[in-house]
Structure formats: C-alpha cells, structure tokens
C-alpha cells in the first residue's frame, strides 16, 4: 500500500505538468513579473510609511544625527565611583545656583526645605530660608485661607502656579520640573552638564526660529531655554571662582542629589551587602564541597551474588 502510494506520487512529480511548472518558474517572464511585483510593493510600502522597516536602524541614528542630539562626554564626577559620596560643598554651591538662576523658571517639587538639612545646610539656615517664602495655609477658624512664612516641612516654592502659567511665561515651552531630571534624561548628569555649557551659534545651514536657541546636545538642536550660565553670574560664599563650568558642575551635582537623595547611604549599604553576600557565597561553596567530598570520592564495587544452591 505504502509502496503503491509512493509510486503514484513519484509518477505525478515526474509527469509532464511538472516539467511545465519548472519551465514557468525559470522563465524570463516570471523573473520580470516578480521583480516588478517586488519593486511595486516596496514603492507602495515606502509611500505609505516613509521608510522600509529595519533599514533605518542599520544606520547610526536614523536620517539625521541631530535628531538624537550630540552624545555627551563622560565627565569625572566627584560621586562617580562605587564608593564615592556626593561632594557636599558642591551641593551647597549647586543649591545656590539653582536658587539664584534655575528657580526663576524651574520648579523642584519633590524637595522640601527639610531635605537640605544635614546635606548642604544646617537646620537653622534651612529654617531661615524657608521663612523668607510665604506659603498659603488654612483654612483657619473662619474658613479663610491665609499666608504664613514657610516651615522646614514645606516644599520648594514653584516659579509658576501651574503648567499653563509656566507655558505662557516661556513662549509655550514648559520648563520641566528638576526634581528627577538627572534620572529622566539619557546621559544623566553628563547630558545636563553638556547642555548647560554647550550653547553655540547654529552651524551654517541650520535655521533656528525666533525665540529658540541652538544646542547640539539637545535632541533636534533647537531648545527654548537660552544659555543662562555666564562667568561670574553668582558669587559663591566659599570663594570658589564662579565660572560657567564650575556653576554647571555644581548645579548638576545638586540636581543629581535631588534625584537621588539616598545616594550616599545607598553606596555605603552596597559595600556592606557585597562583603556579606560574597562571604556567604564562599561559605556555602565550601560547605557544599565539604558535604559532597565523601560522595564524590567514594568507589562503588559490585559483588555479584554467589549462587549457593550448587
């Protein structure tokens, strides 16, 4: 039965119709029509979607390098190493730069005055700074809201009451909240430092709209924020020369702290965890070898039973 079926199948593939099929497969007309079909579908696809799939990713970065922005250099931050804490003197200077420069537009919603205590300021200093700001509180006994000086528990005051006001004050562009900005941008601290210090005139052929500024590190190149840091803009209380790069470094360190207030403690716990867990791993490896040693070194002999009946 099987033999018969195979015979039949064999007969059918070697029949005259098969030869005709093979001939059609190899004909010039088929080649031409298939080429036409392929070219047509590619043209149709690119007309619909712009580019072919997977081709774009092969190139370095799509069609224009400027779409992604220039990649920042890796800077030797004082807190970069596995064991390195923040430089708290730099945090204090960075707070000053944030307060005197950035805070004019950017909020820092997730940081309260109390967070500065024991990080960059003493409790008395933080309390004095908080008291300079009026906060709305209430309602009081008559159901009225009232203004009061700030307390340590209050959060940093915002530059604008809401997003719409912020957009209206900045030609439609929203200055992002800076609390988590170092975590929220590719390249983190390196990127923000490069952005702050990277403003240049647009290269030939790049047109920047009115009110926009050219920065090669910003994806697309055109950024609404103008260059704000210039040499000598702030006066540091510890006498550090306030160059552009010094201020940028300090404020980025401060923003990095704002994004990761747990940073110093985290690295210390990390040291402990690595020591403890590697010790425990070594112990467990030793115990395993110790317990398995007799099992791995034993020899098993097989003594066939002796037939005692003969």
């Amino acid at each position: 039965m099987l033999n018969h079926w195979c015979q039949v199948r064999f007969a059918s593939t070697s029949s005259a119709s098969s030869n005709a099929f093979q001939a059609a497969l190899q004909s010039r007309a088929t080649l031409a029509s298939l080429s036409l079909f392929t070219a047509g579908s590619i043209a149709w696809y690119t007309h619909l979607y712009g580019t072919l799939p997977f081709i774009g990713e092969v190139h370095a970065s799509g069609s224009h390098l400027s779409d992604e922005g220039l990649h920042p250099a890796a800077y030797p931050w004082s807190h970069k190493g596995l064991f390195d804490t923040f430089d708290h003197a730099s945090l204090r200077r960075g707070y000053q730069v944030y307060r005197e420069v950035c805070a004019a537009c950017h909020s820092l919603d997730r940081i309260a005055w109390r967070n500065l205590v024991g990080v960059s300021h003493t409790a008395d200093e933080a309390r004095a700074m908080a008291e300079e700001v009026e906060y709305e509180d209430g309602p009081n006994g008559e159901g009225e809201m009232f203004q009061r000086p700030g307390k340590l528990a209050d959060y940093m005051p915002r530059a604008y009451p809401n997003e719409e006001a912020a957009r209206a004050g900045n030609a439609g562009a929203l200055p992002p909240d800076l609390s988590l900005i170092v975590k929220a941008r590719h390249g983190g601290a390196d990127y923000i430092f490069s952005l702050l210090t990277g403003y240049i005139d647009p290269p030939a052929g790049v047109e920047i709209r009115d009110g926009m500024n050219y920065n090669p590190y910003f994806p697309g190149g055109a950024i609404s924020m103008a260059r704000v840091l210039f040499d000598g803009l702030v006066e540091y209380e510890d006498g550090t020369p306030a160059t552009t790069s010094q201020m940028a470094k300090d404020v980025v360190t401060f923003l990095n702290w704002a994004a990761e207030p747990e940073h110093d403690e985290r690295k210390k716990i990390g040291i402990k965890a690595v020591i403890l867990f590697s010790t425990l791993t070594l112990i467990s490896l030793y115990v395993k070898r110790f317990k398995w040693a007799p099992i791995k070194t034993r020899k098993i002999f097989y003594n066939p039973p002796v037939d005692k009946h003969h």
Binding site: F83, H88, K268
Partner: peptide
C-alpha cells in the same frame, strides 16, 4: 562591621561629606 565599613567610607570620602564641612556653617 558597621563601624569598620563606616571608617573606610569616611576615609575614602574625606572632606566631601556634610560632617566634614558642617563646622564651617554651624
């Protein structure tokens, strides 16, 4: 263990932490 790790950490980060600069401001 905590004292040991803290001693190492503080020496590694000498002059950088708040406790190292606090005396200037308090």
């Amino acid at each position: 263990f905590d004292m040991g790790v803290t001693a190492f950490y503080d020496r590694w980060n000498q002059g950088k932490q708040w406790k190292d600069i606090r005396h200037k401001y308090v």
